[in-house]
Amino acid sequence: MAEYRDTIHSRAAIGGHPLHPMLIHFPVAALTGLLPVDLAYLWTLDEFWWRAGLWLSGVGALGGWVASIFGLIDLVSVRQIRLKITAWCHAILAVMMLSLASLNWVLRYHDEAVSMQYWALYLSAITAALIALAAYLGGRLVYEHAVGVDVER
């Protein structure tokens, strides 16, 4: 027989569906896709890959900050979430990752590919690693702590 635990409902939701997990997919895809795009630029030195990286870093950073607003609403307004160490670790990693992603975009926007290519790759790699850690913790919040899950249905 399945063991049911109390669910933790999101306050930032539409029709009971939490917004934060809905909005993170495009930023995660953009920022993880940035690493192979940077490698493709270093391999080919084709400006297409540099422009693609500029767009991916910008879309990823901006989209991530938008998604983080809804995660922050849940973190500060739902007591059961606020009490979870996993939630705080997820939030701290996400802020670190989005800060690096934003720096990556700003540096790309204001500099030439030739002088920035290795810094861009370095920032993209660290960002991808932080995304993996934050995603793992986000998954634990959903699957182990039932944050935003309706087990009654």
Results as ranks from 00 to 15, higher is better:
4 Y>K: 10
62 L>C: 09
79 R>P: 07
126 I>L: 15
134 A>H: 00
124 S>F: 03
47 E>G: 07
127 T>E: 06
85 I>G: 11
71 G>L: 01
33 G>V: 05
126 I>T: 07
130 L>M: 15
113 A>D: 04
68 S>K: 01
132 A>K: 05
66 V>E: 02
120 A>G: 13
64 G>E: 08
75 L>Y: 02
40 A>D: 09
136 Y>C: 00
20 H>V: 04
91 A>W: 14
118 Y>M: 07
74 D>Y: 06
17 H>E: 00
65 W>Y: 12
106 V>I: 15
84 K>V: 08
116 M>T: 13
80 Q>D: 15
134 A>Y: 02
96 M>L: 15
134 A>L: 03
25 H>C: 08
51 R>T: 12
137 L>S: 12
121 L>D: 01
29 A>G: 13
116 M>S: 09
43 W>Y: 15
73 I>F: 07
26 F>K: 00
88 W>I: 08
79 R>N: 04
33 G>K: 05
63 G>V: 04
10 S>P: 03
29 A>L: 13
105 W>I: 09
74 D>F: 12
47 E>Y: 09
16 G>A: 10
9 H>T: 06
119 W>I: 13
26 F>A: 10
37 V>I: 12
44 T>G: 10
37 V>H: 00
25 H>D: 15
105 W>V: 12
77 S>P: 00
113 A>G: 03
83 L>G: 02
57 S>C: 12
22 M>W: 02
113 A>K: 07
16 G>D: 07
78 V>K: 07
56 L>E: 11
90 H>L: 09
106 V>Y: 08
119 W>C: 00
